[in-house]
Amino acid sequence: MGSDFYISSILPFSGIIIKICRAYTDSQEDFEDYFQEVCLQIWRSKENFREESQWSTWVYRISLNVCLTLLKKKKNNGHHFVSDSLAAEEIEDTYAFADESLNILYDAIRQLSEIDRAVIMLYLEEKPYIEIADILGTNPNNIGVRVKRIKNRLKILLDGKIN
């Protein structure tokens, strides 16, 4: 991956990648693995980008696909990342956003199903339902109902934790 491509096409969108990767990982090491894998896949698939959508939508799509694939691989094949072998206490203190409420919200998001995580993050990123549906390859009519259901679930999970 050339550094020019990284600086011009990945770094400005790294926020998207970070937000998504955080929702699918529970340790700093896994997060870095996922982040790197997403960057690599964006670079590898850059030729397939046909400018039918925005570059950011493309980045969202690849980030979600990579995270879901890696998560599935990890579950099915017992694929181990280096962090799997680290003691939990080694991970705890390195993994946190500066904002405590955001950490609590992320903990709740991580308890959702994999697809619900994607839906709610795209919603929080203020993506229109039609774009969420496009990224996830689903029907836009269902997104609104789903978002409502996920928000209710998050409300239960966050009950009184964020003030």
Partner: peptide, 25 residues
């Protein structure tokens, strides 16, 4: 009063250092 998740999300990412990309090493 409890904050909405939308507000938590926005406020959390407004903070400095919230979105620092890890080094690709």
């Amino acid at each position: 009063m409890e904050k909405s998740i939308e507000n938590v999300w926005k406020a959390g990412f407004l903070k400095k250092d919230a979105l620092i990309a890890p080094k690709i090493n």
